[in-house]
Amino acid sequence: MVLKASVRLHIATLALPLLALAACAGSGDGLDQNGNPIGTGSSGGGSGPVTADFQSIQDQVFTPICAQCHAGASAPEGMQLGEGVSYSMIVNVPSEEVPTLMRIKPGDPDNSYLVQKIEGLAAVGAQMPAGCPTTQPCLDQDTINLIRAWVSAGAPMATTPASTTVMK
């Protein structure tokens, strides 16, 4: 099938600038999984299995997935989930959408709004991460179970020595 010259020109006009712009992804040299320079204070590691402790959840879930939107001064619902600020934003903090529920209620995952949101059971709004399952994967059940286990254990900030491990 031979395309008309003008159609070929349109296709070339479309393709060249778009491809030029889309050919600049970073090599990742010297960075951890979350794009932070290795060896700096901002690098939490970000590799290895997810475990039921806060730092692991931060590195494997909050930073790479949630903080793509929930970061900075204009984070949705005012909830920042970036490194260093997320704990104080969620543990024993009332949710904005259902203020009668804490985002994380230590010891009670069923009544923790963040858990309800990632399970798709919340009374208001859509399941998180935003767009899941239609534009990005939902958290797998193993990861959700680990977050529930961390909440059930009292949602401690420090790493627990004996935590459940699941390979992603």
């Binding site: 479309l14 712009l21 889309a22 970073g26 990742g28 794009g35």
Partner: peptide, 21 residues
């Protein structure tokens, strides 16, 4: 609709750029 996007999530960090086509 053809869309090309570019994101440099931290200007002070090298090699972390992202594309979406």
């Amino acid at each position: 609709k053809l869309t090309a996007e570019f994101l440099d999530p931290a200007v002070h960090v090298a090699h972390d750029q992202r594309d979406r086509f």
